[in-house]
Design a binder for these strands. Structure first.
Length: 284
DNA sequence: AATCGTCACAACCGCCTGGTG
DNA sequence: CCACCAGGCGGTTGTGACGAT
Protein backbone atom coordinates (compact mmCIF):
# COMPACT_ATOMS: atom_id res chain seq x y z
CA UNK A 1 0.00 0.00 0.00
CA UNK A 2 1.33 3.38 -0.91
CA UNK A 3 1.76 6.44 1.19
CA UNK A 4 -1.38 8.37 2.03
CA UNK A 5 -1.66 11.57 0.00
CA UNK A 6 -1.01 14.78 1.89
CA UNK A 7 -4.45 16.06 0.93
CA UNK A 8 -7.65 14.94 -0.71
CA UNK A 9 -6.80 15.42 -4.35
CA UNK A 10 -10.42 15.23 -5.42
CA UNK A 11 -11.48 18.28 -3.44
CA UNK A 12 -8.33 20.28 -4.00
CA UNK A 13 -7.89 22.87 -6.71
CA UNK A 14 -4.87 22.56 -8.96
CA UNK A 15 -3.26 24.72 -11.56
CA UNK A 16 -2.38 28.41 -11.62
CA UNK A 17 -3.18 30.56 -8.63
CA UNK A 18 -5.71 33.36 -9.00
CA UNK A 19 -4.98 36.86 -7.65
CA UNK A 20 -7.73 36.31 -5.08
CA UNK A 21 -6.08 33.15 -3.78
CA UNK A 22 -2.74 34.90 -3.66
CA UNK A 23 -4.23 37.81 -1.73
CA UNK A 24 -5.91 35.51 0.77
CA UNK A 25 -2.79 33.51 1.42
CA UNK A 26 -0.50 36.50 1.57
CA UNK A 27 -2.59 38.57 3.92
CA UNK A 28 -3.19 35.65 6.24
CA UNK A 29 0.47 34.73 6.53
CA UNK A 30 1.54 38.34 6.92
CA UNK A 31 -0.88 38.73 9.80
CA UNK A 32 -0.70 35.34 11.45
CA UNK A 33 2.30 33.52 10.10
CA UNK A 34 2.02 29.97 8.87
CA UNK A 35 1.18 28.64 12.29
CA UNK A 36 3.73 25.95 11.74
CA UNK A 37 1.18 23.82 9.93
CA UNK A 38 0.89 24.17 6.20
CA UNK A 39 -1.55 21.30 5.86
CA UNK A 40 -4.12 22.97 8.06
CA UNK A 41 -3.57 26.46 6.70
CA UNK A 42 -5.69 26.29 3.51
CA UNK A 43 -8.70 25.10 5.50
CA UNK A 44 -8.28 27.91 7.99
CA UNK A 45 -8.43 30.55 5.30
CA UNK A 46 -10.93 28.83 3.05
CA UNK A 47 -8.60 27.94 0.20
CA UNK A 48 -9.24 24.77 -1.75
CA UNK A 49 -5.56 24.13 -2.10
CA UNK A 50 -3.14 21.53 -0.88
CA UNK A 51 -1.00 22.72 2.02
CA UNK A 52 2.12 21.91 0.07
CA UNK A 53 0.87 24.02 -2.79
CA UNK A 54 0.31 26.94 -0.39
CA UNK A 55 3.79 26.56 0.98
CA UNK A 56 5.31 26.52 -2.48
CA UNK A 57 3.30 29.53 -3.58
CA UNK A 58 4.34 31.50 -0.53
CA UNK A 59 7.99 30.56 -0.65
CA UNK A 60 8.43 31.03 -4.37
CA UNK A 61 6.22 34.00 -5.20
CA UNK A 62 4.39 35.71 -2.38
CA UNK A 63 7.17 35.99 0.16
CA UNK A 64 8.60 39.53 0.40
CA UNK A 65 11.82 40.43 -1.41
CA UNK A 66 11.57 37.76 -4.06
CA UNK A 67 13.45 38.51 -7.27
CA UNK A 68 12.40 36.99 -10.56
CA UNK A 69 14.46 36.74 -13.72
CA UNK A 70 17.26 39.09 -14.60
CA UNK A 71 20.07 36.91 -13.34
CA UNK A 72 23.35 38.79 -13.34
CA UNK A 73 26.66 37.44 -14.58
CA UNK A 74 27.79 37.35 -10.97
CA UNK A 75 24.80 35.22 -10.03
CA UNK A 76 25.45 32.96 -13.02
CA UNK A 77 28.96 32.51 -11.82
CA UNK A 78 27.95 31.71 -8.29
CA UNK A 79 25.37 29.20 -9.47
CA UNK A 80 27.86 27.54 -11.74
CA UNK A 81 30.54 27.41 -9.09
CA UNK A 82 28.20 25.89 -6.59
CA UNK A 83 26.73 23.45 -9.08
CA UNK A 84 30.21 22.22 -9.91
CA UNK A 85 31.00 21.88 -6.27
CA UNK A 86 27.82 20.54 -4.70
CA UNK A 87 25.62 19.49 -7.59
CA UNK A 88 21.91 20.14 -7.80
CA UNK A 89 21.46 21.25 -4.23
CA UNK A 90 19.20 24.06 -5.32
CA UNK A 91 18.05 25.06 -1.88
CA UNK A 92 21.62 25.50 -0.73
CA UNK A 93 22.52 27.42 -3.85
CA UNK A 94 19.43 29.58 -3.41
CA UNK A 95 20.44 30.34 0.16
CA UNK A 96 23.52 32.09 -1.18
CA UNK A 97 21.58 34.28 -3.58
CA UNK A 98 19.37 36.72 -1.67
CA UNK A 99 15.88 36.96 -3.11
CA UNK A 100 16.27 33.90 -5.28
CA UNK A 101 14.32 30.71 -4.75
CA UNK A 102 15.44 27.18 -5.35
CA UNK A 103 12.70 26.70 -7.91
CA UNK A 104 13.79 29.81 -9.78
CA UNK A 105 17.41 28.75 -9.85
CA UNK A 106 16.51 25.22 -10.85
CA UNK A 107 14.41 26.51 -13.74
CA UNK A 108 17.08 28.98 -14.73
CA UNK A 109 19.69 26.26 -14.75
CA UNK A 110 17.57 23.82 -16.73
CA UNK A 111 16.38 26.29 -19.32
CA UNK A 112 19.23 28.72 -19.75
CA UNK A 113 22.48 28.11 -17.93
CA UNK A 114 22.74 24.56 -19.20
CA UNK A 115 22.33 25.83 -22.73
CA UNK A 116 24.75 28.63 -22.15
CA UNK A 117 27.13 25.96 -20.99
CA UNK A 118 26.67 23.52 -23.83
CA UNK A 119 25.50 25.91 -26.49
CA UNK A 120 27.02 26.81 -29.84
CA UNK A 121 27.48 23.17 -30.82
CA UNK A 122 25.73 20.77 -33.09
CA UNK A 123 22.86 18.95 -31.47
CA UNK A 124 24.87 15.76 -31.56
CA UNK A 125 27.95 17.26 -29.95
CA UNK A 126 25.79 19.10 -27.46
CA UNK A 127 24.07 15.90 -26.45
CA UNK A 128 27.34 14.04 -26.14
CA UNK A 129 28.91 16.77 -24.07
CA UNK A 130 25.88 17.04 -21.82
CA UNK A 131 25.89 13.31 -21.30
CA UNK A 132 29.58 13.31 -20.52
CA UNK A 133 29.23 16.22 -18.15
CA UNK A 134 26.29 14.65 -16.34
CA UNK A 135 28.09 11.32 -16.11
CA UNK A 136 30.99 13.08 -14.44
CA UNK A 137 28.73 14.95 -12.07
CA UNK A 138 26.73 11.87 -11.16
CA UNK A 139 29.84 9.73 -10.89
CA UNK A 140 31.16 12.19 -8.39
CA UNK A 141 27.90 12.02 -6.47
CA UNK A 142 28.10 8.25 -6.70
CA UNK A 143 31.46 8.28 -5.01
CA UNK A 144 29.90 10.20 -2.20
CA UNK A 145 27.11 7.69 -1.90
CA UNK A 146 29.63 4.87 -1.79
CA UNK A 147 31.52 6.72 0.85
CA UNK A 148 28.32 7.10 2.78
CA UNK A 149 27.61 3.42 2.72
CA UNK A 150 31.16 2.36 3.39
CA UNK A 151 32.59 -0.74 1.81
CA UNK A 152 32.29 -4.39 2.61
CA UNK A 153 36.00 -5.04 2.91
CA UNK A 154 36.44 -3.85 6.41
CA UNK A 155 37.88 -0.49 5.50
CA UNK A 156 35.15 0.97 7.64
CA UNK A 157 37.76 1.55 10.27
CA UNK A 158 38.69 4.51 8.18
CA UNK A 159 36.77 7.62 8.95
CA UNK A 160 34.56 7.52 5.91
CA UNK A 161 31.35 9.45 5.94
CA UNK A 162 28.45 7.71 7.58
CA UNK A 163 25.70 10.11 6.72
CA UNK A 164 24.22 10.98 3.39
CA UNK A 165 25.67 13.28 0.80
CA UNK A 166 23.43 16.09 1.80
CA UNK A 167 25.22 16.13 5.10
CA UNK A 168 28.60 15.24 3.76
CA UNK A 169 28.51 18.34 1.65
CA UNK A 170 28.23 20.29 4.87
CA UNK A 171 30.78 18.39 6.78
CA UNK A 172 33.66 17.75 4.48
CA UNK A 173 35.96 20.55 3.45
CA UNK A 174 36.69 21.21 -0.19
CA UNK A 175 39.23 23.26 -2.00
CA UNK A 176 37.44 24.71 -4.99
CA UNK A 177 39.93 24.42 -7.78
CA UNK A 178 42.39 27.11 -6.88
CA UNK A 179 43.74 28.89 -9.90
CA UNK A 180 40.85 27.92 -12.14
CA UNK A 181 39.67 30.64 -14.43
CA UNK A 182 35.98 31.34 -14.19
CA UNK A 183 34.18 34.25 -15.71
CA UNK A 184 37.43 35.99 -16.33
CA UNK A 185 38.41 35.60 -12.72
CA UNK A 186 40.82 33.23 -11.20
CA UNK A 187 39.44 31.28 -8.30
CA UNK A 188 41.45 32.29 -5.33
CA UNK A 189 41.72 35.89 -6.40
CA UNK A 190 40.41 38.56 -4.09
CA UNK A 191 37.15 38.86 -6.00
CA UNK A 192 36.33 35.21 -5.62
CA UNK A 193 37.23 35.00 -1.99
CA UNK A 194 33.61 34.97 -0.91
CA UNK A 195 32.73 32.14 -3.27
CA UNK A 196 35.82 30.26 -2.22
CA UNK A 197 34.88 30.61 1.42
CA UNK A 198 31.37 29.54 0.71
CA UNK A 199 32.41 26.45 -1.23
CA UNK A 200 34.82 25.61 1.49
CA UNK A 201 32.21 25.92 4.14
CA UNK A 202 29.75 23.91 2.12
CA UNK A 203 32.36 21.26 1.66
CA UNK A 204 31.24 20.67 -1.87
CA UNK A 205 32.06 17.96 -4.32
CA UNK A 206 35.50 16.54 -4.26
CA UNK A 207 36.74 13.01 -4.48
CA UNK A 208 38.13 13.17 -1.02
CA UNK A 209 34.59 13.02 0.27
CA UNK A 210 35.27 9.33 -0.19
CA UNK A 211 38.64 9.49 1.46
CA UNK A 212 39.56 9.24 5.10
CA UNK A 213 39.65 12.91 5.85
CA UNK A 214 38.39 14.57 8.99
CA UNK A 215 34.64 14.35 8.68
CA UNK A 216 33.35 16.97 10.97
CA UNK A 217 34.46 20.41 10.07
CA UNK A 218 32.68 22.96 12.22
CA UNK A 219 30.32 24.65 9.78
CA UNK A 220 29.94 28.16 11.16
CA UNK A 221 27.50 29.23 8.49
CA UNK A 222 24.88 26.84 9.77
CA UNK A 223 24.73 28.25 13.22
CA UNK A 224 21.40 29.79 12.37
CA UNK A 225 20.08 26.71 10.64
CA UNK A 226 20.28 23.80 13.01
CA UNK A 227 18.37 21.58 10.63
CA UNK A 228 21.29 21.76 8.23
CA UNK A 229 23.84 20.87 10.80
CA UNK A 230 25.64 17.60 10.30
CA UNK A 231 25.66 15.10 13.12
CA UNK A 232 27.90 15.83 16.09
CA UNK A 233 31.58 15.27 15.48
CA UNK A 234 33.70 12.77 17.30
CA UNK A 235 36.03 14.72 19.49
CA UNK A 236 39.17 13.51 17.80
CA UNK A 237 38.00 14.67 14.42
CA UNK A 238 36.84 18.00 15.71
CA UNK A 239 40.08 18.49 17.49
CA UNK A 240 41.88 18.52 14.19
CA UNK A 241 40.38 21.84 13.41
CA UNK A 242 40.27 25.04 15.29
CA UNK A 243 37.04 26.95 15.45
CA UNK A 244 36.86 29.36 12.53
CA UNK A 245 39.90 27.83 10.98
CA UNK A 246 38.04 25.87 8.38
CA UNK A 247 39.93 27.34 5.50
CA UNK A 248 43.24 26.03 6.64
CA UNK A 249 44.07 23.78 3.73
CA UNK A 250 46.51 21.89 5.90
CA UNK A 251 43.58 19.83 7.09
CA UNK A 252 43.73 18.10 3.75
CA UNK A 253 46.70 16.07 2.72
CA UNK A 254 48.31 17.27 -0.48
CA UNK A 255 47.24 14.16 -2.34
CA UNK A 256 43.62 14.80 -1.62
CA UNK A 257 43.94 18.37 -2.74
CA UNK A 258 45.44 17.17 -5.98
CA UNK A 259 42.64 14.70 -6.45
CA UNK A 260 40.09 17.29 -5.60
CA UNK A 261 41.53 19.61 -8.13
CA UNK A 262 41.69 16.94 -10.76
CA UNK A 263 38.15 15.87 -10.17
CA UNK A 264 36.68 19.30 -10.29
CA UNK A 265 38.88 19.98 -13.26
CA UNK A 266 37.24 17.08 -15.07
CA UNK A 267 33.92 18.76 -14.54
CA UNK A 268 35.33 22.07 -15.65
CA UNK A 269 36.56 20.55 -18.87
CA UNK A 270 33.06 20.87 -20.20
CA UNK A 271 32.69 24.46 -19.17
CA UNK A 272 35.11 26.34 -21.31
CA UNK A 273 32.37 27.78 -23.47
CA UNK A 274 30.75 29.25 -20.42
CA UNK A 275 31.27 33.02 -20.43
CA UNK A 276 33.82 32.30 -23.12
CA UNK A 277 36.20 31.38 -20.37
CA UNK A 278 39.31 29.35 -20.72
CA UNK A 279 40.57 26.98 -18.14
CA UNK A 280 43.92 28.05 -16.81
CA UNK A 281 46.28 25.66 -18.55
CA UNK A 282 49.01 26.26 -16.04
CA UNK A 283 46.97 24.49 -13.43
CA UNK A 284 46.68 21.27 -15.38
C1' DA B 1 -2.94 34.32 -41.13
C1' DA B 2 -2.19 29.66 -39.71
C1' DT B 3 0.64 26.16 -38.04
C1' DC B 4 4.43 24.25 -35.80
C1' DG B 5 8.37 24.12 -32.76
C1' DT B 6 10.84 25.96 -28.96
C1' DC B 7 11.38 28.37 -24.76
C1' DA B 8 10.51 29.81 -20.08
C1' DC B 9 8.41 29.21 -15.98
C1' DA B 10 4.76 27.88 -12.65
C1' DA B 11 3.18 24.09 -10.44
C1' DC B 12 2.79 19.26 -9.27
C1' DC B 13 4.56 14.69 -7.80
C1' DG B 14 6.73 11.60 -5.02
C1' DC B 15 10.55 10.54 -2.13
C1' DC B 16 13.31 11.50 1.96
C1' DT B 17 14.11 13.28 6.52
C1' DG B 18 13.31 14.80 11.12
C1' DG B 19 10.19 15.40 14.89
C1' DT B 20 6.90 13.49 17.94
C1' DG B 21 4.04 10.38 20.54
C1' DC C 1 12.08 1.14 18.68
C1' DC C 2 8.41 2.02 15.71
C1' DA C 3 4.83 4.35 13.15
C1' DC C 4 2.94 8.41 11.66
C1' DC C 5 2.97 13.01 10.01
C1' DA C 6 4.44 17.41 8.09
C1' DG C 7 8.05 19.85 5.95
C1' DG C 8 11.51 20.06 2.58
C1' DC C 9 13.58 18.95 -1.61
C1' DG C 10 14.70 17.72 -6.47
C1' DG C 11 12.81 15.98 -10.69
C1' DT C 12 9.35 16.35 -13.96
C1' DT C 13 5.33 17.98 -16.37
C1' DG C 14 1.90 21.29 -18.19
C1' DT C 15 1.04 25.35 -20.50
C1' DG C 16 1.19 29.95 -22.29
C1' DA C 17 4.18 33.06 -24.96
C1' DC C 18 6.90 33.77 -28.68
C1' DG C 19 9.37 33.16 -33.01
C1' DA C 20 10.08 30.76 -37.40
C1' DT C 21 8.22 28.93 -41.48
Amino acid sequence: MGRAPCCDKASVKKGPWSPEEDAKLKSYIEQNGTGGNWIALPQKIGLKRCGKSCRLRWLNYLRPNIKHGGFSEEEDRIILSLYISIGSRWSIIAAQLPGRTDNDIKNYWNTRLKKKLFGKQSHKDQRQQQQQFMRQVTANDGMKQEAATGDANGSSSMAVATYNWHHQAMAVPVQPVPGTMMGGHRIGDEGDESIRKLLYKLGGAGPFTALPVPQCVPPPMYEGSPSLMPPPCPEDATALLNEGDVQDSSVLPALELDQSFHFNQVKLDGLESFFGMSIDQSMR
